[in-house]
Simulated assay, not measured.
Amino acid sequence: MGDQYTETSEGTFIKLADGTYNWYEKNFFNDEQSVEMTQLDGKEYVKVNNGENSESPWGESETLQTSLSDVLRSLFGINLVEADIDEVSVHTETDKTRYTITTTTNYPERIKSETLQALQKRLEALKQENTQKEFIQGMEAQIQLIEETQYLDNILTYEIDKEGFLTDFTYKATVSQKNGAYFNFITSTSITEYNLNDTSHLLPSIDD
């Protein structure tokens, strides 16, 4: 509706000795509401804050709603192939190298299709679980909005630090909606810490 909308996530993932992961993620919606999720030793927990001191306690999910692959895919799963690339520029600084990629129109259409397939699958699962009607309607509206949206002028930027780690990723696009409105869509991810010796402070404590 012409207003700026911001969604921010922060979190961590920790690889355990047996090769599995524990992880934590907190999502902020326009700085008014937040949803926290964590997966500890194969169990997933959720906590919701609706603002105005309305915060739920941690509750265990009956089924795992989010797999680690879903979380990591949002960070690294760009799924970009050579045919998607229209132009590449490289800028090198003392402590990092920045790669800026302009994509062809095929890339956003393919990603849009894959996103819609995943959302439809999730929607069917929620219906089977008898999820609240309002939540179902919200997801259906989200799916319809994506179906009617075109993503134009797609630019991806990667920053690699001097140690060879991917530390920043940004995706920018001009978005065209069915009603003819245009706006900017930007998603950005930064990895602020990695390979820490002490990770005890990164995961929440869940009371039994």
Rank of each mutant, 00 (worst) to 15 (best):
Q142H: 13
V175L: 05
E159T: 10
D168G: 03
L116V: 15
Q128D: 14
N106T: 11
I186H: 04
L166Q: 02
T157I: 12
Y182M: 09
A181N: 07
T115E: 12
G138R: 07
A141K: 14
K112E: 02
E163V: 14
L145G: 03
K172N: 09
S113V: 05
E134T: 09
K162M: 07
K127Y: 07
Q177M: 01
A181S: 08
D153H: 07
Q144S: 14
M139V: 01
A118K: 14
T105A: 15
F165D: 13
Q144C: 05
E114W: 02
F169D: 00
Y158N: 11
Y171K: 13
N130M: 13
E129Q: 15
T149W: 03
A173W: 01
Q132M: 11
T131S: 13
N154Y: 06
I155Q: 13
L156F: 13
L152R: 13
Y158M: 12
M139E: 07
K121E: 09
L116D: 03
L166T: 05
Y182H: 07
F135V: 10
S176F: 11
D168P: 01
I146A: 04
T105G: 02
A173D: 03
L145S: 05
G164D: 08
K172W: 01
V175E: 06
G164S: 05
T105W: 03
P108T: 00
S113L: 04
E147T: 11
E147L: 07
L123N: 12
Y151I: 08
Q144K: 14
Y171V: 09
R122E: 11
Q142P: 08
T115R: 03
Q117V: 15
Q128L: 10
I186W: 05
V175M: 10
L116C: 02
T157C: 10
Y107H: 04
T170C: 00
T105F: 02
P108K: 01
G164W: 05
E114S: 03
I143N: 04
K172T: 09
Y158R: 12
Y171E: 15
L166I: 07
M139L: 15
G180C: 10
D168W: 07
R110Q: 03
I186P: 01
E148M: 15
T131E: 12
Y158D: 06
D153K: 14
Y182K: 11
Q128F: 03
S113H: 06
A118L: 13
P108H: 01
Q142D: 14
R122Y: 15
E159L: 12
